[in-house]
Amino acid sequence: MTETRHLASIGDIERGTWDSLVPAPCFYQSHGWLAGQERPDFATATYTVVSSGSRLLAATPSYDFPAENAPPLPPVAADREVLRVGTRTGYHNEFLLAGTEEEQRDALAELVEGLADHAARLGSDALLFDFLTTDSLRLLAGLFPVRAQLRSAEAVVHNEEGTFESYRRLLGRNVRKRDYEVRKFEQAGLRLETAPLSECVDELAPLIGQTMDRYDASLDLAEIRTFLTVQAEHLDGLSTVFRVVDEEGGLVGGHVSFAWREMLYARVAGFDYTRTRDAYEYFNAVYYGPLRHMEQHGLDTLHLGLSAVQAKVRRGARLHPVWAAVLPLPLVRGAGLTRDAAADQALADSVRAEAGGGMDEKEWELGRVTPL
């Protein structure tokens, strides 16, 4: 017999139990990451779990935002009072499920029904699954009639052989330009050092602030220090900061990353622009240095997230679609998937035009996205 429970904190479930459901692509749904995102002053988190005895079958966070903190809704969820299901940061969600395909379908159905009950108690009239992978969207649509829209494209470097030389082979005709970026960095007298996040919070926070200001995403310095400190508290053992230093060891910039299973996640970078030398510091700190580090630590996949897709594709990334999916309440059982095919195709075409490559034609053939 299965049981569905709603927990008020990720701390209410043992870390190893939760993480047993979390594969490599789902770092942003891991216990440590979610613990660092708990902010009751910002949004109320709930963790819905389905279990059978001591065995965890399905799990997800959800977030109830007050109106003043709520992120903008995707058009498919316009005019809805939604409960947001899945991690609230990181822009990657998929269902955390255990067992055979049949067991996973049953567990997902129970999970969604539990979420619907929770949402109804909050006064919500829909569940929003944002930045959902195609496989998870299809699985959900095989159980419930879903309204969906293409949301974006996430960039990932799949370096299956796991060496820097195999990465260079991925680059094809772009390899000479990328080699030049490495040489220019080295010739500028710069080098990379690594350290855990806990050793870098105070020095790195102002540089992240500089970079955020530069790209019109300003955040108070105290807030930057707070989120870095919290991440160090929960994730220090998974963290690597790639510190860009000059000949005297002075800090020029840095990039915070986290390792999960066989993947490395590029998270945030910051630079002192009075000390940079037009030497591709960003790409060395976020791509080339981490890829060499990955070879040494048995990692083969670099997650780069959304946006700036052309720069990422030119440096070996592949692009994968992510979706917004809405389930109106009350729930109705039965397979179904409704979307604006023309709007989705227009977005896919826009991504293709910007990226100039990196898109598997079969994966991006949106007409194939049907309920499982």
Rank of each mutant, 00 (worst) to 15 (best):
D340Q: 03
G336T: 02
R339T: 05
P321R: 07
A324D: 15
D340P: 03
L319Q: 02
A343I: 10
A335F: 06
P321T: 08
A311I: 08
R333F: 00
P330E: 03
D340N: 13
H320M: 12
L319V: 08
L329N: 00
P321H: 01
V326H: 00
A311W: 01
V322C: 12
D349H: 12
L327R: 08
A311M: 06
L331Y: 02
G334F: 08
L327P: 05
P328I: 01
G316Y: 00
A341N: 01
L327E: 05
A317G: 09
R314P: 05
A335K: 04
T338I: 01
R333I: 03
A335L: 00
G334L: 07
K312R: 01
A311C: 00
A317E: 10
L319I: 06
G334P: 10
A348V: 05
G334S: 10
A317F: 02
L329R: 10
A325Q: 02
D340K: 11
V326P: 01
D344L: 01
G336Y: 07
P321S: 12
R315S: 12
G334H: 11
L329G: 08
H320N: 14
V326D: 03
A324G: 10
A324Q: 08
R339Y: 00
V313M: 09
T338D: 15
G336H: 10
L331P: 04
P328C: 08
W323Q: 11
R315T: 08
V326W: 01
H320W: 14
A343H: 02
A342H: 10
L319K: 06
W323M: 12
D344I: 07
R314A: 12
D344E: 09
V326R: 01
D344H: 03
A335D: 07
R333E: 14
V326E: 05
R333T: 12
L327N: 05
G316N: 08
V313N: 09
H320Q: 14
G316V: 03
G336D: 09
D349S: 15
L327A: 01
G336K: 10
A325E: 02
R333G: 14
A341W: 07
A346E: 14
A325G: 01
A335R: 11
A343Q: 10
A348I: 06
V332S: 14
A311E: 13
W323K: 12
P328M: 00
A324M: 01
L319C: 05
A342M: 08
P321N: 04
L347Y: 13
L327W: 02
V332M: 13
L319N: 10
W323F: 15
Q345S: 12
R333Q: 14
T338K: 10
R339Q: 02
L327Y: 04
D340Y: 07
K312I: 02
H320C: 09
R333A: 15
Q345L: 13
R339L: 06
A343M: 03
V313G: 07
L329P: 06
D340M: 12
L347H: 02
P330M: 09
D340E: 07
A343T: 06
D344C: 12
V313Q: 09
A317T: 07
D340R: 11
A311R: 05
P330F: 02
W323I: 11
V313K: 07
R339P: 04
A346S: 12
A317P: 08
R333N: 11
R314T: 13
R333P: 11
W323G: 08
H320D: 12
R318A: 15
A311Y: 00
V313T: 14
